[in-house]
């Protein structure tokens, strides 16, 4: 029974990983890519790790899987935020069909 639940979690996680990687290829600019891939791949990997926890129970490996979920949920949004900010500071433009860019406007206003 435990093995079947673990297998379901792992398969769902791998499916979300696949969606995230497809988003990484299909989306048109850096910010959209970051958005799609960070969300999907973070939850997918958390699903796989939770499957590992269900499989092993409260042993050394299972507790390590839980800690790894914690680290991942804390670090993945931070690195996405840092990459988005770095890309914007290094001058990567938004997609040409984007609606608005308040950040660029405010930075130009601050420099004057």
């Amino acid at each position: 029974m435990n093995d079947i639940i673990a297998l379901i979690f792992i398969v769902v996680g791998i499916a979300f990983d696949l969606f995230g990687s497809i988003g990484l290829v299909r989306m048109p600019d850096v910010y959209n890519r970051l958005q799609a891939s960070t969300k999907c791949v973070t939850l997918g990997t958390c699903g796989i790790l939770f499957g590992v926890f269900v499989k092993f129970g409260f042993s050394a490996a299972g507790v390590k899987a839980l800690l790894c979920i914690l680290f991942l949920l804390l670090t993945a949004p931070v690195s996405a935020h840092a990459l988005a900010r770095g890309a914007h500071k290094s001058g990567v433009k938004l997609w040409e069909k984007s609606v608005c860019d308040k950040y660029l406007e405010d930075e130009a206003g601050n420099k004057q």
Partner: peptide, 17 residues
């Protein structure tokens, strides 16, 4: 270069899985 950095980040998370 930003695209490559994003892909590297995603690659690192996939290795954990």
């Amino acid at each position: 270069a930003a695209d490559r950095s994003v892909a590297t980040d995603i690659f690192g998370i996939l290795v954990i899985g």
